Simulated scan of single mutants.
Amino acid sequence: MLRRLALTAVASLAALSAAAPAATALSPLVPLPPLPVIHDDWFGGQETRTRLTVTVSESGNPVADGVFELECGPAGGSHPAAQRACDLLDEAAASGKNPFVPTDRNAMCTLQAGGPAAARVQGTWQGEDVDARFSRSNGCEIARWNNLVPVLPSAR
């Protein structure tokens, strides 16, 4: 009885394995449609395209020195002026200007010192990676810093 059961199982398996390729050969394979891309806003959230870490030191304002997180869309994080900072960054994006571009090495800059303030901005702005350093070492750098206030604090 056991032998008959084993022979039946082997015969059935052989028949099925021979039938499967024949069945697929008769019908062409149909590709599956592409899967949809899932967006954050499908779940009620809004995609954050700006997420920055702002590190400031020696600005002359102890409250402004430190490490701050800035998120835009909606404005948030630990940045003390998040909404105003996001508004400034949105204006820059609308005008097509990247506020994180370093000063041109060939630029003629006034030789004035704006203090020891230093800052670093890292993260993502408008979906692009950012790693920018700021100082107040000459006229060009002072102007670059001032153009980014309130993302960077007003330095004394």
Rank of each mutant, 00 (worst) to 15 (best):
C86V: 10
L16A: 15
L29Y: 13
D87K: 02
T53I: 12
N147T: 08
D41H: 08
A18W: 11
N98T: 12
D90L: 13
V121W: 00
V54M: 01
R3G: 15
G73W: 03
M1I: 08
D129T: 14
W42E: 10
T48C: 02
N146W: 02
W42C: 00
A81E: 13
Q46F: 07
R136F: 06
W145A: 01
G45H: 11
T103L: 15
T53S: 11
A155H: 09
V10S: 10
A118N: 06
D87P: 00
L52R: 04
Q122L: 07
C140S: 08
S12G: 15
V130E: 10
V63E: 14
N98I: 09
A18S: 08
P62Y: 14
A6M: 07
Q83A: 15
L152W: 03
A25W: 15
W125K: 00
L26P: 02
S27N: 11
V67T: 15
V67P: 03
A18D: 06
G60E: 07
Q83W: 06
C72E: 04
T53F: 00
A132Y: 05
F68M: 01
T55H: 04
S59R: 01
T53H: 01
L32T: 13
V121T: 05
V30T: 13
A82T: 05
P80E: 04
P74Q: 13
L89A: 01
R120E: 05
A20N: 11
R105F: 03
F134K: 01
Q126M: 12
A118P: 00
L70V: 02
C140T: 04
K97G: 03
K97D: 11
V149E: 00
D90N: 11
A85R: 05
P102E: 05
S137P: 07
P150F: 04
G123C: 10
A113P: 08
H39E: 12
S95G: 10
V67Q: 10
P116M: 09
A93H: 01
G44K: 00
D41W: 09
T103M: 03
D104C: 05
W125I: 05
L88M: 08
M1S: 11
D104A: 13
T110Q: 04
C140R: 04
N61V: 06
H79A: 02
R156N: 13
L35H: 11
S135G: 11
R136C: 10
P116G: 06
H79I: 00
W145D: 09
A9R: 05
L152I: 01
G123N: 06
E71F: 06
L152S: 00
Q126S: 14
Q122Y: 03
L32D: 14
T110K: 06
C109Y: 07
L16K: 09
A113D: 15
A92L: 06
S57M: 09
R133S: 12
V56M: 06
E58V: 08
V63Q: 13
F68A: 03
L148C: 03
W42G: 03
F100Y: 02
S154T: 15
A155E: 05
A118F: 02
